[in-house]
Design a protein around this nucleic acid. Structure first.
Length: 333
DNA sequence: CGTTGCGA
DNA sequence: TCGCAACGG
């Protein structure tokens, strides 16, 4: 979701400093891991793999990004998806089809030696399987970072953590958490966010989106924002053809939502979808505990089992601890 | 994506 | 020291 939806959010994206993001953050694990699997690849699309051919792109991404977050004083909670709602079945089927077709196109591109196309299709063929999930959690556990299992959508759980005050903000590239009520969404939390300005390369600041500012600025309620999303399409419905975010916003602001649905998409059970965004299943009984990284455990897992270079891993581990002066991360807060 | 190595 | 290409697994 969100490709069209973001057209009305442009004015509410604020650049923020890394310092202002110190504290606890609920990380959309699916979103982050997908990004790692999708992007960390060779030019021909081959992901990082150990000697046995097991994919390791996600482990590389999790380790180095976590090291960077820890150095910046950002304590992450990794929120994993549970069982998707029935409402999402069609989207899931569509994604599987796209993935399978991308996989075929990847092989075809490889066969004809078109690396650029190979890389592009390989990215779209990315899939988070059980093995990726298991090894991700294993590494996060060794890093001492808490993982929460959502009963349903991870974005909903992440939004809940912030609403409840256990985290300051959600980290995700997707905007869905806003619909689930996250008051503070942070995007572009990448180390390598670099841009050239006047010949100089400066690091691009992360950006934040504050839900109250969005709602106030657009003069709508959260329920209205959800209606806008439903008109353009969500994970739970395909939206109305030809209606983008700006048109959808105007329709909702003018009170024309129900009529538009009735006329253009009468089969959309919008009330059920809206109710899911407003009252999603969440786990309310979680325990958040941060521990020191298990240095030996991480080295054993990544180097002995997955063929990472001990040198690189040690350097990353040094970066996580040295700055804290042997204190536990917890003692910062 | 994030790190590292290399040429200027 | 910087900027970019290549590597990592």
């Amino acid at each position: 979701m969100g490709v069209a939806f973001r057209d009305i959010l442009g004015d509410y994206k604020e650049p923020v400093s890394w310092e202002s993001l110190a504290g606890t953050a609920a990380l959309d694990a699916h979103n982050a891991i997908y990004q790692f699997l999708s992007i960390i690849r060779q030019p021909d699309g081959t992901p990082l793999m150990d000697q046995e051919g097991r994919v390791t792109s996600h482990l590389s991404g999790i380790l180095f990004r976590s090291a960077s977050f820890i150095e910046k004083g950002i304590r992450t909670v990794w929120v994993f998806d549970g069982t998707p709602p029935d409402l999402k079945q069609e989207t899931i089927r569509e994604r599987r089809t796209v993935r399978e077709q991308a996989s075929e196109k990847w092989q075809e591109a490889l066969a004809r030696g078109d690396k650029e196309a190979a890389y592009k299709h390989a990215r779209s063929s990315s899939r988070i399987d059980d093995e990726v999930l298991r090894t991700s959690r294993e590494l996060l556990d060794l890093l001492g970072l808490p993982c929460i299992q959502a009963p349903s959508e991870g974005e909903a759980q992440a939004a809940y953590l912030v609403q409840r005050g256990d985290c300051r903000y959600v980290v995700s590239q997707d905007y869905d958490t806003l619909l689930f009520g996250a008051p503070f969404l942070a995007r572009n939390l990448t180390v390598s966010g670099k841009r050239k300005i006047r010949g100089r390369s400066i690091s691009v600041l992360p950006e934040r989106i504050m839900l109250p500012a969005v709602l106030k600025g657009l003069s709508i309620t959260r329920e209205d924002l959800i209606k806008v999303a439903i008109l353009v399409g969500t994970d739970f419905n395909s939206g109305i053809r030809g209606v983008g975010a700006k048109t959808a916003l105007r329709i909702v602001q003018n009170g024309g939502f129900e009529q538009a649905i009735m006329e253009k998409s009468p089969d959309t059970d919008w009330e059920t979808i809206a109710d899911f965004f407003l009252h999603p299943p969440v786990n309310e009984n979680y325990l958040l505990e941060w521990k020191n990284p298990d240095r030996e455990g991480i080295l054993t897992m990544l180097c002995d089992r997955f063929d990472f270079s001990p040198d690189r891993i040690q350097r990353a581990l040094d970066g996580m601890n040295v700055k804290t002066g042997q204190k536990t991360l917890d003692s910062w807060f």
